[in-house]
Computed example of a mutant assay.
Amino acid sequence: MVRGNDDDALAWGGDDDPTLDVGATTDPDAAPAALPEGYSAVGKGSENVGRIRQDGSVAMPGERAPMGNALLITLGIIGGIYLLYAIGWLIGGLRLQGQAAYLVTDVMYQGSFWLAVLAPPLWFATVFLLTIGSKPWVRVVWLVAGVALLLPWPFVLIGAVGR
């Protein structure tokens, strides 16, 4: 197809470059601006440009990818450990209740007891909420650190039956 002379004055070499189409449309029903891999948008509106995935779908900025199966299983296992830790703090703390009466008042013991029981679920929820926008490995590292820090020592040392 041969263009006319009027069209030649409005054309420039490289007009088909997809990076030039950033923010060109004002139609709200139009498809979102997206670039294939290897291209980067610059200028006004470049932060709203998505990426075209290999399967043809468009990933927009701020759009989170769903969690993978391995991460879901890891979160389930660590969540189960935290639940067992809360139960361990409950059992271990109840076993120590009679012996702690010689060291601290009952009010102080009850406050610290319930704080210890609630610490594992609170740590899990806090890490989960504060690491929503970060990489999955960051969330797993903080959860594993909590597994090491929140070990229910009364249950580990005395056990469920005691001596």
Rank of each mutant, 00 (worst) to 15 (best):
I52H: 05
L10K: 07
L151C: 12
F124Q: 10
A9R: 07
M1C: 01
G133W: 12
P18S: 08
L143M: 15
V140W: 15
Y39R: 02
G13S: 11
D106G: 04
G93L: 08
L35R: 09
G14E: 13
A41S: 02
D7R: 01
A125F: 14
A101M: 07
S57L: 01
V58T: 00
Y82K: 06
D16F: 04
S46E: 10
V104C: 01
V58W: 07
L84H: 13
L71F: 04
A9S: 03
P28R: 08
L10C: 10
V2E: 05
S40A: 04
D29P: 10
M67W: 00
L84G: 10
M108I: 13
D17Q: 10
L10G: 06
L122S: 15
D6H: 15
A24F: 08
I52V: 04
P120W: 06
P32C: 08
K44T: 11
I81C: 09
M108H: 13
S112P: 11
R3N: 09
S40H: 03
L150Q: 01
V144C: 12
N48T: 07
I81R: 03
R53Q: 05
D17M: 14
P32N: 07
Q99F: 14
M108E: 05
I158P: 02
L118S: 05
G98Y: 13
I91F: 09
Y82E: 08
A116P: 04
Q54P: 08
I52F: 08
F124E: 02
G56I: 00
W114R: 09
G159L: 05
D6T: 10
D106W: 04
N48E: 06
L10W: 02
F155H: 13
V117I: 07
D21N: 07
A33Y: 15
F113I: 09
G45K: 15
Y39E: 01
A148P: 06
W123A: 03
Y85N: 08
F155L: 04
R53E: 04
R53A: 13
A30K: 12
K135Q: 12
W114D: 11
I81M: 15
G92W: 00
G56V: 11
V138Q: 05
D29G: 06
G79W: 10
Y109A: 12
G45P: 15
L151S: 15
L115K: 07
S46D: 11
L71N: 06
L71D: 14
I78C: 13
D106S: 00
T19P: 04
A65W: 06
L75N: 15
S112C: 02
L118Y: 01
V104H: 07
P120A: 15
Y85E: 03
R3C: 11
Y102H: 12
A59V: 07
G4L: 11
G80I: 12
D106T: 01
Y82D: 06
V58G: 02
P120L: 13
P121N: 07
L130N: 14
Q54V: 06
S134I: 05
G80E: 09
V144G: 10
R64L: 11
G76W: 11
T74K: 08
M60W: 00
Y102P: 02
R51D: 09
N5S: 10
